[in-house]
Design a protein around this nucleic acid. Sequence first.
RNA 1: CGCGGAGUGGAGCAGUUCGGUAGCUCGUCGGGCUCAUAACCCGAAGGUCCCAGGUUCAAAUCCUGGCUCCGCAACCA
Length: 510
Amino acid sequence: MNTFFLTTPIYYVNSHPHLGHAYTTIVADAMTRFQRLMGRDAIFITGTDEHGDKIVQAAEKAGQEVGAFSTVISAEFRALWPQLNTRPAAFIRTTDPEHKRLVQEFLHRVHAAGDIYFGEYSGHYCYGCERFYTDKELEGGLCPQHQVKPDFISEKNYFFRMSRHQEWLTRHIRDNPDFIQPERYRTEVLTLLDSGILDDLCISRPKTRLTWGIELPFDSRYVCYVWFDALLSYISAIGGVGSAGYERYWPQAQHLVAKDILKPHAIFWPTMLRAGGVPLYRRLNVHGYWLTRETKMSKSLGNIVTPLDMAARYGLDAFRYFLLREMHFGSDANFSEEGLVARLNADLANDLGNLFSRVLSMVSRYCAGAVPAPAGDTDLESALKDLALECLANFQALFDAYRFSQALESLWELVRALNKYVDSAAPWTLAKKGDAKRLGTVLYTLLECMRKTALHLWPVMPEKAEDMYRQLGLVFQADTVLLPREKESFGLLNAGLPLPAPVSLFPRVD
RNA sequence: CGCGGAGUGGAGCAGUUCGGUAGCUCGUCGGGCUCAUAACCCGAAGGUCCCAGGUUCAAAUCCUGGCUCCGCAACCA
């Protein structure tokens, strides 16, 4: 089946949505829109992760009951996505009853398969932090937070036999170079796997310490460790193992995460799936962080960028464009308002917006506002068309590989070539000479290439792309578009179409 | 010797997998055009590709050693 299925992480509700969350979801949305234009049945899903210690603590800090607290934050995330023009096919909460049931069912399967055992865990426990510390984490034997000596306590817990699957996982990652992308993160995981034996994963928390979680189906004195619960949401969101949604989408599953949660996705999750007898996801796509002034964004530093402020100030599509154009997928990137404005002015206003403006105004002036008919091509057109098809083919291949920045660069190579073509062909001279045939060819060629450009931009800037389409006298309908044929031929724009009065697409910001 | 990333013209970055005349955008300077959002097009200046060794006919790219910066090990995409 020709499907495409992508997940964002389910965001942890101990903080409000920020630029990082917006980026990941916008990437997921753009990729999904792209795959749809490529002719696939494509969806992405998102949601919130709501269990665990940290949430209980955050709720206490806010002076709220934990269930009510996570509902409020979860709703903030859910409300943000439509405002960024992202359209998840599902929004899952790990507190959904159906998810809880599916997690318990999965735990049962793994337990029955013999991959969960009851054992004892000993460690340095700080009652102030309500957590265990490893020897490495302690500073001079003291808890780094409270500067007190933690108690050495033993606790009975359930463990997942992750170590049993280490060899198999290592081989799988070696044999499937695409399983973790970009390459550097694959290398990182392989280094980690080669550096020693994996510990088994402690997957329970005694209710004496934590009750905010999913109860273990085989022991009501415990709740499930958050990651074991959260990762399974990727399957709950489409109906659970064996459901119609699962059959349809899971075989093509890809995940999208930031580098901080590489380990749970690259190690915990595949071994869990293996133990539960569920086929693995196809691919894990890992991106970097947005930095502000060379340093990481964090609440304590007060340098959080609020996505909606930027969108409101400069336009949502310019914001989306900036995020995809500026960050090289996988590496960290810098976010700055100046950077955004620079891109908006240079790429969107000067190159793209101005191209539409100059061409549409000539069509309006020289062709009575209707798409002219092309006559014969000269070498100038042949060269331009060759370049256009090459740029579009590159765009499609790069976008498909999550190399958004390079994909857009490739598209802008075409935009610049179009501006250059205007200068070389000089339609104003043709108009003066009264060479209607040649003028028709030049302007038609431009309009057709602009149509292709708008089409390819839709995943990144849906509203503006639809505006561009309208300017070309067309109505954009995603289901009727097929990108693959667009990189092969010209002439899908019909001559004679009346065009509306030109409107500025991207006004400059000064 | 905790793990990882980065160091390329004034700024921001590609290129490093599979060595072969150093590339893009912005900025600067000069020119062109007049259809256009003071936009667009052409040309120019500007680089010891962190340093030192090594391999090679040839190294930004491979190997060894070192320096500097940053991130993770605490929240967090």
